[in-house]
Write a protein that binds this DNA or RNA. Sequence first.
DNA 1: AGATTGAGTGAACGTGCGTACACTCAAAGT
DNA 2: ACTTTGAGTGTACGCACGTTCACTCAATCT
Lengths: 210, 210
Amino acid sequence: MTESVQTASRQEQKERTRQAILASALELTRTEGFAQISLRQVARHAGIVPTAFYRHFDSMDELGLALVEQSFSTLRRMIREAQRDPKVFDNIIDAAADVLVEAVKHSKAHFAFVARERVGGSAAVRRAIQHELDLFVSELAVVLARLPNIENWATEDVQMVSRLFVRNMVSNAEEVVEMPDGRPDLEEKIKEGARRQMRLIVIGFRDWKS
Amino acid sequence: MTESVQTASRQEQKERTRQAILASALELTRTEGFAQISLRQVARHAGIVPTAFYRHFDSMDELGLALVEQSFSTLRRMIREAQRDPKVFDNIIDAAADVLVEAVKHSKAHFAFVARERVGGSAAVRRAIQHELDLFVSELAVVLARLPNIENWATEDVQMVSRLFVRNMVSNAEEVVEMPDGRPDLEEKIKEGARRQMRLIVIGFRDWKS
DNA sequence: AGATTGAGTGAACGTGCGTACACTCAAAGT
DNA sequence: ACTTTGAGTGTACGCACGTTCACTCAATCT
């Protein structure tokens, strides 16, 4: 119970090393894909000896799952913050496009990791990402179900539209990830494209089954 | 010029081995992702010694590019055949959904390869796939531009819609790839989802900018 | 003050890898 | 009938890998 300032030191140091490992893996994943980076590479980049890796993760696969968790918690935080902004109610489409581009730009490495490992990763990592995305679809469906044109749709139709939105969000995120830095024109182009796609879908809403 | 029956023998044998290498790589890629299968694995699976691999490809990267080419030529042939079918004019949406599911089912391994390596592969393979997909978007845009509601749209709007279609085609293909065999119910569900998404977009067309 | 814990070390292992090199031996060319 | 060609062989190399094991030594606990 006498833990206060000094007690933190050991735990803190361990946590710092853990974060260094995560950051190193993310950095190395920028160019290579998680499945082809090695435990030794990660350890080297994090400034520790290969065996020390095992003090933090049982295997590279567990490190991958930790990265998935970290990536999605980042994204969730950003979306929660954006929802507080009142202007999203006025123009949900423009707001969504802005949030998307900003979020991806802010944590590019995380998004690049998710985009790539969603289809290319190990089975475990792939499943974890798919699960998170499925959660997203369901959450978004709840939000959509409250919109004027949609409130009396069949549940499965709302789910479908939600999938359509998330799917396009993922695709647009991929584009932003591959966007070179310092090109605000390209960024604006992607935003504009995203806005148009969403508008198109929303227009489809209005006349759905009419 | 005296090449007739016997002359083919050497060439034929070489071609047969080449196809064995391609097929082996495709087979191994089912579970592992192209970047993490080794030259030696491919050679072993194809029934040759590792060094013999070099008689056919300079590197694994070139093998990957050959697989991209093979995959897309398969897809192109299928779409060309489907376009001859007169019923695609009556109901282009249902026809597209059918073609998609059938094509992916017919050469699942090729589609799985493309879907995975599109984002997870080496830079060269990724670029090759992106190039092929860009071609597809342009080709589809030409077809779309002839449709009644679209004929006087701005070119960039048509391109955007075309991207939207191809993007969703890719996503749906991913779903079919991950679909377990012998589940016609799941297959029909994916088809139905694809139909709905396309209908939604088409409805958006009608009222675009009105 | 002394004992315990546990993050990080360093050497060593077996394995699979890509690639080099010199080779065989039928088919194809002359 | 001979030479040439070239797909496929077999050995051998150096290297990076994941994992093992016995270790150090400062922070923490008693």
